[in-house]
Nucleic acid binder design. Structure first.
Lengths: 221, 221
DNA sequence: CGACGCCTTGACCCCAGTCAAGTGTGGTGG
DNA sequence: CCACCACACTTGACTGGGGTCAAGGCGTCG
């Protein structure tokens, strides 16, 4: 019985106090009734989907300030604590303005994930993954990676071996340095993002249809 | 100037009349100011993200009754008409209850997409893609695929050649039949979904932590 | 100490990307 | 009407990237 609720003291109203949970703790299960949404106060959360055949898809990681559990009705994924310890704030649905902000945050995270996973080569995926986390953890050169390699693999649609090899490759190319398995330093951010093919949004807003006619047929691979 | 707005007559209030748009029409561009959200009344829409290097990620397809353009602030993707013609209903942000429903629909679509794209083999991706569309177009054996193969490829992270080969493979295995390039019949739904590895949610809700202890380490590949 | 979890590395091989050619269809102009 | 081209889809041959299997290094725990 690993439910976070055990450790939570309920309060009247929509907002609950921040509560602690340890590594491996399950905050909610896929298919549970979705009564709450959450915001990460500290630590890292992963959301996972288990297929009937046992295969697993990690659908995302949530860092400080990010939200999860915004499904309505029933949770489609499970949420588990990745870091040694995490602190999360629990919300009831209710305050519309607040709810909408939460939903939008979730949407943004998911959109990013698709752009990440859709990448072609393994090296590009891992590079983009690191670049993405760097941004989301507010840009320090030191990137915390509390999740095991298997989580990264199941997130990017790769195997642990390949993920490991790509980290080694990035080290060999002097783009990153690893202090420990779960602490990475970005040495050459520019080349890393080039590898990642970061879409730095150079497409101008507004009436860009002149640049990209609607019937364009060929895109680079 | 392919903007849908040209064809739209504005009305006071939040809801606009349903408007028509032809194949290839751009409803909004990536990086445009996000003033509206949309619901598909007929036809098919695709949302795409263009990287700076010209590569393209199709982030989703929207069928009748589904919503798109729920980004807040700035559209992260472009939305284009895929089918010969489409009809979309435009909404302003405002009615909180309605807004929340729209956001939730979008969220569900994106979550599904991640589960689709995360699959390992090409055959599994295409099979899951077809199974998914069958569900979303309300279960007829006849599946409309108005989008070109290139769109499917850019959606699943494959190449057109591979997508084409997988369709042929599915035909050879007698799982599907193709009347034309863009109309597919599912012959053997069961085996198709088996290939897709459809997660038919056999994991019981509630306190399932006994079945899936938090520290489980090995998952099938 | 051994057992186990997690990560890494190597060897091998197959799946899917690449390059190329062929087919069928629709549009355009002579 | 046909000639020609553009486009979308398919298929084949080849190759390389990444999956698979196996072994080994650490760190932690009992």
């Amino acid at each position: 019985m690993n439910y976070l609720e055990n450790a939570i003291t309920c309060m009247k109203g929509n907002v609950f106090p921040i509560s602690r949970a340890q590594k491996g703790a399950v905050i909610y299960h896929q298919n549970d009734l979705a009564r709450f949404r959450f915001e990460v106060a500290a630590g890292v959360i992963r959301t996972t989907y288990l297929f009937a055949d046992g295969r697993r898809q990690v659908t995302g990681f949530c860092f400080e300030g990010e939200v999860f559990g915004t499904d309505q009705g029933i949770y489609k994924t499970s949420a588990e604590v990745v870091s040694e310890t995490a602190r999360v704030r629990r919300f009831c649905w209710g305050d519309s303005a607040e709810d909408e902000r939460a939903l939008n945050k979730s949407l943004g995270l998911l959109e990013n994930s698709i752009l990440l996973i859709g990448r072609r080569t393994a090296l590009s995926r891992v590079a983009a993954f690191l670049a993405d986390i760097r941004l989301r953890t507010k840009g320090s050169q030191w990137i915390p990676l509390p999740m095991p390699r298997a989580d990264i693999a199941d997130y990017l649609g790769l195997t642990v071996e390949t993920v490991s090899r790509m980290f080694s490759e990035l080290r060999r190319k002097r783009l990153i340095a690893q202090l420990e398995d779960h602490l990475v330093q970005i040495i050459d951010q520019e080349r890393l993002e080039a590898l990642a093919g970061v879409g730095t949004d150079e497409i101008p807003p507004g009436h860009a249809s002149d640049n990209f006619p609607p019937h364009r047929t060929h895109y680079p691979r």
